[in-house]
Amino acid sequence: MSEKKRVGVQNYRFIELEPTPTTAWGKFKRVLKRSVKLELFVGLKVTFREMFKALFMGEMHTVKYPLEKLPISPRYRAIHEMKRLLESGHYRCIGCGLCEKICISDCIRMDTRYDENQRKEVVEYTINFGRCIFCGYCAEVCPELAITHGGRYETASEQRASFSLFEDMLTPIDKLKEQKEYPGFGAISPNADENIKKTPLAY
């Protein structure tokens, strides 16, 4: 029976070590030997080298998060951004509600009204980030490239509402110049011009 047990073949071998000193003198001699030969620094050699590189040669491998952040892909899908028109600064959203319709977790809602200039005004716009799965459909369906995903991935907050309202997501008017187009799904393709059939104009 015992032969059928699959017991591994144990190829243990003894390494040759100096006999452990037993006398107090003997122990003292070993400590002295190890210290003076600086075996510790042999082990720390790589560490010191990298430390030197990081501190003095600018080859740091970590970032000082939250003081520093790594750049992320422009197509990263984090908290939404509402874009403005570059010329007028007016928000791009026309309140068509397509994002609301396509949202698969049903987390977008908007209130619109007929304003004094006979236009559709977006009175309020919210995304329930408790439910949002950041699928990107809203950005893809938006006909005005008004809603896009941004790079703001830190979604811890005292209240979820903190970044779910229209004004929170809207590009601040003073940062209009820094507003960048989103190159992800829903953006204009690089060869868009080639695909357009021109409509004749009578002007």
Partner: peptide, 9 residues
């Protein structure tokens, strides 16, 4: 009803 809601909602 103008601009209050979309028909498909």
């Amino acid at each position: 009803f103008i601009y209050k809601a979309n028909p498909w909602e």
